[in-house]
Design a protein around this nucleic acid. Structure first.
Lengths: 153, 153
DNA sequence: TATTGTTATACTCTATAACTATA
DNA sequence: TATAGTTATAGAGTATAACAATA
């Protein structure tokens, strides 16, 4: 039984439990593989790189906003930001209107790291995608979008 | 701009780095969400359940084969199998031809647990998929298949 | 000697609870 | 009193290194 049938059966709804199952399994394995294949070009964890990526897009965010975005608890984000700050990838500053807040912004070093690492860190995965056809790439893009929505809902 | 455009551009190849990037990010977030949303119906971790699922399909495997399949190191698999054995979900027995090997097989309790948990543990995810259309489900199925292949390659 | 699995140990990531400082 | 973030602590999951038993 082929696992990648691109059928759009009329009763596709009945496939939902099966899709849920294979999706869950593949996500678990994929994430472990991605963690293993990661280049140790820098000392940043996957989570820290995700934070840096968010700051690359948004420039400056509060620690709480970062925690919410990455769906981790504040203490976990504190740790990641500590690590990033020690490495000179981000800087903290006190909020102006609300001085309880901590505003985290990305440094030039952080920016360079994001650019460099996006290339090198996605290189392995991109290499795995090289032989896919346009439809398969489109399926991955769609799936990524759906997963992103589900994960952050 | 929708993020899930099913375009099959002629130069889709140039999208590979971007697809790799969004796929990686969404996989990381999805896996965390799945871990969080998991029902604590039983005391089995996600990894242990994956092992049980493999044994559900294969009946009996060596510990080394399980470790290779789940892409963990042997000590990690030893731990998971210990846990599963303590719970009565699997049994160990010594290999017959090669007595260094440990053959792990699933018990009836393990089988029941797989069936029951596949339903309940995928329930949350399935619920998230309920509003998707047939094309989106097909995309997820295709993506899962590709990820499975990449993760186990 | 090489291989299969186990034990001992440590590391990473994450969480909850208790705390500090602002609001 | 409530909120933003930090510190302290614990737990889950994984890895590497050293070891035991068998090939």
């Amino acid at each position: 039984m082929p696992t990648a049938q691109p059928v759009s059966a009329p009763d596709a709804t009945s496939d939902i439990p099966e899709v849920a199952s294979v999706l869950r399994t593949s996500v678990m394995r994929m994430r472990r593989r991605l963690a293993n294949e990661r280049h140790p070009d820098n000392d940043l964890s996957l989570g820290s790189m995700a934070v840096l990526g968010a700051l690359y897009a948004c420039d400056e965010m509060t620690l709480g906003a970062l925690a919410a975005r990455e769906r981790v608890q504040p203490p976990s984000m504190t740790r990641m930001v500590n690590f990033l700050e020690e490495g000179g990838y981000v800087v903290r500053r006190q909020g102006e209107t609300d001085r309880r807040q901590v505003l985290v912004s990305i440094t030039d070093k952080g920016r360079r790291t994001v650019r460099k690492d996006r290339l090198s860190r996605d290189a392995w995965l991109a290499q795995q995608l090289v032989d896919l056809d346009a439809d398969e790439l489109a399926a991955l893009r769609t799936a990524a979008s759906i997963m992103e929505r589900i994960a952050t809902s």
